[in-house]
Simulated scan of single mutants.
Amino acid sequence: MTAYRNYLLKVNEAFESLIKEIDVIYNFDHGDEFEIVLCKALRKILPMKYGIVRGHVITKEGKEAGDDIIIYDCVRFPSLRLLENDSFGQKQFIPIEAVYAYIEAKNTLYPCDSNGKMSNFHKACEQVHKVKSLPREPIASSGKRGYWPEIQNPIFGVVWSKQLAYSTSQKCKFTDRHKQKKDNCCLISTCYCQPDEFGMKMSCCFEQLHEALEDQCALIGGKSDQLAPDLIVAGSDYVAFPCVHDKEVHSPFFIPSHSLLTSVHGDRKAFGIGVTNLLWALDSITLGSIDWGYVLSKELPDVNQPPSRK
C-alpha cells in the first residue's frame, strides 16, 4: 500500500525529470552549476511561500556562514541585496531569522579520500554545521514532542549531490575478466569509463559505496561537537536521515545524543525521499521576527536602542 497514490515515487520521477531536462541546457559538471540546477528544480516543487536563493546566511551582528542554497520565508522577509526573485546566478544575503533550511550542494559527493586530504563530504558537513551554529533568537516549543528539536525554529541542514563516488583519488582498474564479461566493477571506486570503451557502462559496486557513505555518516553524526546534517541526498540511489534505536524515524531533524545518521540505499528513489523529508521539515518550522528596532537603532546613533523582544 502506498501513500497519496505513490506520492513519493511521483515526486522522485518529477525531480529526476527536471534534473535531466535542465542538464540538457546547462550540461553541468561543477558544483556552482549544480547549485543553479537544484534551485530551479526545487522552485518547481516547493510552494511559492518558500524563497530559494544562493548565498549567505547573516545575523544582525554581521556574522555569516554558508555559500550555497538557502530556503527562506520570502513572504514576510526580504533578501538583503534586493535582487530579482529567482535570480540564481547571483549570491544573496538572507537574515537568519528568515531561514528555514540551508543546502550544501555538490555535483559529486566523495565520502572518502585516500590522499590524506579531507573529503568534500566532510567539508560539506562542516559548512552545514557552521550555518546551524549561527545564533538566532529561539522560539520555545510548547511541549516535549519526543525526538524533535526543543525549539520551533531550528535550521534544517542538508547536503545534496547529483551523484556519489568513492574517492577523487581512486578510479576503476578493470581486469581482463571485466573487459571480457562486461560485468559490474567490484572495486571501491566510481567507474569513470566511457560507455564505448568496453561496449557498455560499467557500474560501481553499490555495496561498497553504501558502506563508505554509512561509515562517514556514523562518524559525522557521532561527533559531540558537531551539528550533523539533518539530511544527505547522495545521488539518485543513496539518502541518509536521522533515526533512533533500530531505524525508527520520529522526525526529520537530527537530535544530538539521540539520533543516528542512517544511510539507506534508496534504489532510484533518493531524490523523492529527500524532497519528502525537506517538505516535512519545512512544514514543522515556525520562524520568529526580525528585530527592526535594533536595525533602526544602529543607523540612528542618537536614539536609544530598544530592548530586545522576548
Rank of each mutant, 00 (worst) to 15 (best):
Q92I: 00
R81T: 14
K60F: 02
K63L: 14
K117T: 14
R136N: 13
V159M: 13
T175F: 05
S133I: 13
D176G: 00
P149Y: 02
S167H: 01
I94G: 02
K63Y: 07
S114P: 02
E84R: 10
Y102F: 14
C125L: 07
I69M: 03
V57H: 02
E104N: 01
C172I: 12
Q170S: 14
E61P: 00
K173Y: 04
H56E: 14
P154M: 02
V158F: 04
L164A: 04
E150D: 13
C74W: 03
R76V: 02
L83H: 13
G157K: 08
F88T: 01
Y166G: 15
I96Q: 03
H129Q: 04
L164S: 00
C112M: 14
K144G: 02
L83T: 07
K171N: 12
D67F: 00
H122L: 15
G89C: 07
K117P: 01
K171P: 00
I151Q: 00
S141Y: 00
I155D: 05
F174K: 06
I96H: 01
V75I: 15
N153D: 10
K106P: 08
G62R: 03
G66F: 05
Y166V: 10
A101N: 08
Y166C: 11
S87C: 15
K179N: 00
I70P: 03
Q152G: 00
K106L: 08
S167A: 15
L109D: 06
E137M: 15
A124W: 09
V99S: 03
R145F: 01
T168C: 06
G66L: 05
M118E: 15
K173R: 13
K162R: 15
F174A: 12
D67A: 08
S169I: 00
R136T: 12
D176L: 10
E137Q: 15
W160M: 11
P111L: 10
R76Q: 14
N120E: 12
S167R: 11
I139G: 02
R136K: 15
S87M: 11
Y110V: 06
D68Q: 03
G66T: 07
S141K: 12
T168A: 12
V158P: 05
A105P: 06
W148P: 05
H56R: 12
H178M: 01
L134M: 11
G62K: 06
D73Y: 03
L109I: 07
L80E: 02
S79N: 08
R81C: 08
R81F: 10
C172S: 11
S167M: 03
T175V: 06
P138Q: 05
M118H: 02
Y166W: 06
N153H: 02
S114A: 11
L164M: 09
E84A: 09
N85D: 14
Q90D: 09
G146N: 04
K130L: 13
N115Q: 11
D113E: 15
Y110A: 03
P135M: 08
K162Y: 14
E126D: 14
W148S: 09
K63R: 11
V128I: 10
V99K: 03
V99G: 02
E150M: 07
I70Y: 07
V128E: 04
T168R: 15
K173C: 10
D113V: 01
N115I: 04
F174H: 14
N107S: 10
V75C: 11
Q127M: 08
E150R: 08
Y72M: 04
V99L: 04
K173T: 13
F121V: 12
L164H: 01
R76L: 12
